[in-house]
């Protein structure tokens, strides 16, 4: 038995080795630094105990605000983005003309470089000559409804729309991944099940709820975790569009951590922020893993 266990360990040995060499040291370092006040350069640092954590948790409303804003972006990603991804994956799964073409096209946004994404969306949302405003103006001209032209604004600079605008960019950039993973999941459901259900007289709606959804729960779990981890740690898009502004309206945890590290020269404080953030992400992911295991009909 011991030999068997040893052999089983051999499977994870390469991964553990790499982890031990390249991840453990940075991890220990971040734990260590989180209890110091340090500017990132000086050879001397000041021990402050749990002061950094106390300050983050109790005296840093902007940090918590950034957390909620990231949660809002994540919520939109989880619901709208994944719903869109699922619909598209379902259509592609059933076989559709040009399916090959669609599959390629849906994956263009994730492939595009952040620079292009920033340029394009800054142009779309621009308040003076932006595409979105242009379309709204056209729309209100055709329909004679002034509501549309009243909507015109600098989308990224208006506090009412800035966060949602960013969330939409994130959704646009991210749905390709959800689509891909969901499609892979759907493809692994045996066709015979659907055929059998059809013979039994089930309609498309019933077979979707009775077959597709239960069998897809593990995949939903993966996609949710991927979406949550991706959207909570959103950073590139923010930097290339709003830089966290206007005021604090689009600040997210990562921009706060980097601001503390670079601008404010609080390296230790930034490490503590990272740990607090990590703890939250870890617990959310664990809950989802547990949940999808409980719901999974195959696991029971």
């Amino acid at each position: 038995m011991a030999k068997r266990t040893f052999k089983n360990y051999l499977f994870i040995l390469p991964a553990l080795l790499l982890f031990a060499v390249f991840s453990i040291y940075p991890f220990i370092k971040i734990f260590q630094l989180s209890v110091y006040r340090w500017d990132g350069i000086m050879p001397t640092m000041k021990f402050v105990g749990i002061f950094n954590f106390k300050d983050i948790i109790f005296h840093n409303p902007i940090w918590w605000r950034s957390m909620w804003q990231a949660a809002y972006i994540t919520l939109i990603a989880l619901t709208l983005q994944n719903a869109l991804a699922l619909v598209l994956a379902l259509i592609c799964d059933r076989g559709i003309k040009f399916g090959n073409g669609y599959r390629v096209i849906f994956f263009i946004p994730p492939v595009l470089s952040g620079i292009v994404v920033g340029l394009i969306w800054n142009w779309i949302y621009n308040g003076n000559y932006g595409l979105l405003n242009h379309w709204l103006a056209q729309l209100s001209k055709w329909t004679h409804i002034s509501y549309f032209s009243n909507l015109e604004r600098a989308w990224l600079a208006d506090p009412r729309t800035a966060l949602t605008s960013v969330a939409i960019i994130n959704m646009w950039k991210g749905f390709g991944w959800g689509f891909l993973v969901l499609l892979a999941g759907l493809q692994s459901i045996p066709r015979q099940l659907y055929e059998a259900a059809k013979v039994d007289g089930a309609n498309a709606w019933q077979s979707f709820w009775r077959i597709t959804v239960p069998l897809m729960i593990p995949t939903f779990g993966i996609v949710s975790i991927m979406t949550i981890l991706g959207a909570m740690q959103i950073y590139d898009i923010i930097v290339s569009t709003t830089g966290g502004g206007p005021a604090y309206h689009t600040e997210v945890p990562i921009t706060r951590i980097l601001a503390a590290m670079r601008g404010n020269l609080q390296f230790g404080y930034a490490c503590a922020m990272g740990l607090v953030f990590g703890a939250i992400l870890l617990s959310v992911s664990l809950i989802i893993i547990k949940l999808s295991r409980k719901l999974n009909p195959l696991a029971g």
Partner: peptide, 12 residues
């Protein structure tokens, strides 16, 4: 001020 100045990066 031009519209959207508060979130404009200098390159824009």
């Amino acid at each position: 001020l031009v519209e959207g100045i508060v979130t404009m990066v200098n390159k824009s």
